[in-house]
Amino acid sequence: MSKAVSAMNGASFAGLAKVTETGLGGMITLRGDFASAKFQTAVKAATGTQVPATRKIAFGDRGAAAWMSPDELLLLVDYDSADAVVAKLSEDLATEHHMAVNVSDARACFAVSGDAAREVIAKVAPVDLEAGQFEAGDFRRTRFAQVAGAFWLDETGSFHIVCFRSVAVYMYDLLCTAAHPQSKVGIYA
């Protein structure tokens, strides 16, 4: 098999904030009934964490689970183990109505870090990023200018963005423009 590469091959840009393409990540779309005990056990087995609360992301020892909608989770695992995790989920949920798909290669991931990270995101997404309104562990699906994307904030103050691979170049250029060194607004400073 050919060597897997991410959409932007790890490109990075340093401006108001540091924009980095974070490379290959394992991503699984999992749909099902959150209230079902089997579903909860399967999520725990796949990622090591519980089913997250609404608009939250929960981290476990083998990955993370993010709340996408009332019946959909995004599971983040190692790129190489994604297929195995999907196989396990399909086995665990065989008797339940569900869907588990490895979407790793359909996605691109970015990180925005630094003092102005909140401002850079706020420029392009219609989300209140005031401290206290959006905190570590919060997860939000929204749009970034003209494309759909989701993001969360980690404990170190870095934002992680997930979007479709087909719009990776647009997303990277957009974030770099928003992080242009001479474009400071200072609203969250």
Binding site: M68, S69, P70, E72, R141, T142, R143, A148
Partner: peptide, 8 residues
Amino acid sequence: RHVNGCGK
């Protein structure tokens, strides 16, 4: 429809 969001 919450199209750029949860999709519902």
